[in-house]
Design a protein around this nucleic acid. Structure first.
Lengths: 249, 249
DNA sequence: TGTACATCAGTGAACGCGCGTTCACTGATGTAC
DNA sequence: TGTACATCAGTGAACGCGCGTTCACTGATGTAC
């Protein structure tokens, strides 16, 4: 049975039973670890995971060399999930509809965050004491910013956005960039490998901070007793305001 | 000796030795607990604190009935410190200089956050698993928003701010509030006991979210490898932009 | 001022848990001839 | 197709730690007469 599979399902050699079981258990461990995030926070207990799996606690070490490595794997998975959700949302909208792309993007980020509050806290909440994220997390971490940067770059390319402010926003309403800020943003644009004028990048950061700042408050429960209803419409309005501020149409 | 004190230093009965020692030890415990926040996070170890004090671990229970109560005390202290810093900064600026008040306020919040990153994480980072903040924290928690609300109310009262947008910001740049949002903000203004038109409150929230969102990123280290230098000027610029957006001058 | 009693800070042992990680070992799966 | 050997998943005991909280007790401080 196991050997019968169409060649386009498994174009290479059929994977060994061992390898398949290994993959399954690896992801089961990660699933249980993520469930633990919710109730216990980022102090994962390997023994509890092993218990849930009905295994000896030492068995986990066949899959992850240490607790921190498991945590790193979770972080990378989560960044990738969030990034993929953001990308998919953006790709569902016609390229020239910049405001709609921004709205689709930001709502997708919010939806993911609300559906996975503990994971969102892992990525954007308090740093985990004693844990230092290795370099492998850097790429996935920036993945969710890509759609936003691409959106802005597309706008510039199509002549829909520029460093000039929208006509009615004069300098009194959007102060000019002081030299050190302009220089820093130029450097950042270079590091991100995008060709964005600094004023536009600054506005992009404003929008991005508003998005994630709002989600930190909402997900971490800071709106409790303040804003209980209509959080969705309020979020939407704030994002529309940011979109207008950036000059998206 | 202990009985010799000028009457205006201690207008009432001289406090007993016991009471004085008790206060000192109470605050020593809190100081050590806050030091632990930095290295170990919010999972306080009462035994470690007792060890540092050279006491039996059970002695802590003469001062705090449980670990969660100690955490609550820390949270209240920190909210009050942050709130006091924000208030002081605001009070140092002439009442009619709204933009300067906003800048002083936001910089004071940032200064406190950077000086006390672990405490800031306790207040605004991931919720502590298993901990539910009691009602005593609600008042102190909102204290730091008071200067901002007062600033906006002062602006309205002096005719410097209104629900009308600044002249050059037409509706395309600041979308009108949909009904549920307007209603929710009206309700919020009532709950906060401030008389602010909803558009203005919405813009105030935008500024507040930008402030705390930016600080979450900075304090939790999300700018690492992205923005290393000139964080102060960038922060200042973002706050000026928000001030302009709100219509502060 | 002195005495009797109440208060309460601090002790130290105990209860009943938890944890990450290592290591020598067993036995099943996979591979090369 | 069958055999010999290598790989590696999983075990279970052990090491050396950690923790919050309770409780009966001692002895110093505070208070009322």
């Amino acid at each position: 049975m196991l050997c019968v599979m169409s060649s386009d399902e498994q174009p290479r050699i059929a994977r060994s039973l061992r390898a398949r079981v290994r993959d399954e258990l690896t992801s089961e461990i990660k699933t249980l670890a993520r469930a633990q995030l919710m109730t216990e926070g980022a102090d994962l207990s390997l023994r509890a995971i092993a218990r849930d799996l009905g295994m000896a606690s030492s068995a986990i070490y066949r899959y992850f060399p240490s607790r921190d490595d498991l945590l790193t794997a979770l972080i990378i998975d989560c960044y990738n999930e969030l990034g993929a959700a953001a990308e998919d949302a953006d790709l569902g909208i016609p390229r020239e509809c910049l405001l709609d792309r921004w709205l689709a993007y930001s709502h997708a980020v919010r939806d993911w965050a609300l559906a996975h509050p503990a994971e969102f806290a892992l990525l954007y909440g308090s740093p985990v004491p004693g844990y230092r994220a290795p370099m492998d997390t850097v790429g996935p971490a920036s993945r969710n910013t890509a759609p936003l940067l691409r959106l802005l770059a597309d706008g510039v390319e199509a002549g829909l956005l520029s460093d000039r402010l929208p006509d009615s926003l004069d300098e009194a309403h959007w102060p000019p960039l002081p030299e050190p800020v302009r220089g820093e943003l130029d450097r950042l644009a270079g590091a991100l490998a995008v060709d964005l004028p600094p004023q536009l990048l600054a506005r992009g950061i404003t929008g991005w901070v508003q998005l994630f700042g709002l989600l930190c408050f909402e997900v971490f429960g800071r709106f409790q007793n303040m804003i209980e209803d209509n959080r969705g419409p309020i979020f939407d309005h704030q994002m529309r305001s940011m979109g207008a501020l950036i000059g998206l149409r």
